[in-house]
């Protein structure tokens, strides 16, 4: 599914009790869809499409937000949380920590919706779980 098509379909779609708002961004020659689940615009999901896969990324926090001396411990925790966390994995992009999920480009709206809802819930749970490592 193309991203603009996904954007239109998501706006009329509700799944697992969640609603979606999405914004199409295309200012650097790379199409990105910003999806907000249940009005949680603090943790938007960014969806990009490559030839092989659809990537859903949610940025969690920057490196600078980690409490001093807690980097290693946090990284260790994230690696341990990686497997139990359904469908998503932790990642680092530039200086930002993120969680992401990857899907086949042949995924259906239902599959994409499920991924986005799960990623959104995971991102909130993950922040909650590791907030002790973060500064205000």
């Amino acid at each position: 599914m193309e991203l603009n098509e996904l954007s239109i379909k998501l706006s009329q779609y509700e799944t697992e009790g969640a609603s979606f708002e999405s914004f199409f961004i295309n200012n650097v020659g790379q199409e990105v869809l910003q999806v907000i689940v249940d009005g949680n615009d603090e943790l938007p999901i960014f969806v990009t499409r490559t030839e092989e896969q659809v990537l859903c990324i949610c940025y969690l926090f920057t490196e600078q937000e980690i409490s001093a001396d807690k980097h290693a411990e946090l990284n260790d925790t994230l690696l341990r949380l990686n497997v139990p966390m359904p469908l998503s994995a932790f990642a680092k992009i530039d200086n930002k920590y993120a969680i992401f999920g990857a899907l086949s480009t042949n995924s259906t709206l239902e599959q994409l919706g499920h991924e986005i809802v799960t990623l959104s819930a995971n991102s909130i749970d993950a922040l909650d779980a590791i907030s002790d490592y973060l500064t205000e």
Binding site: G29, V32, E42, L43, T50, I57, Y59, I93, L127, L134
Partner: peptide, 30 residues
């Protein structure tokens, strides 16, 4: 693609209100 997407996202985030909030503040709001 991720690099380019990150650039696009950074552009959006720095112009939006979510740019300034720390993760902890975001979590509190949610």
């Amino acid at each position: 693609s991720v690099q380019k997407a990150t650039m696009a996202v950074n552009d959006t985030m720095t112009s939006g209100d979510s740019a300034m909030a720390s993760a902890k503040q975001s979590l509190e709001r949610i």
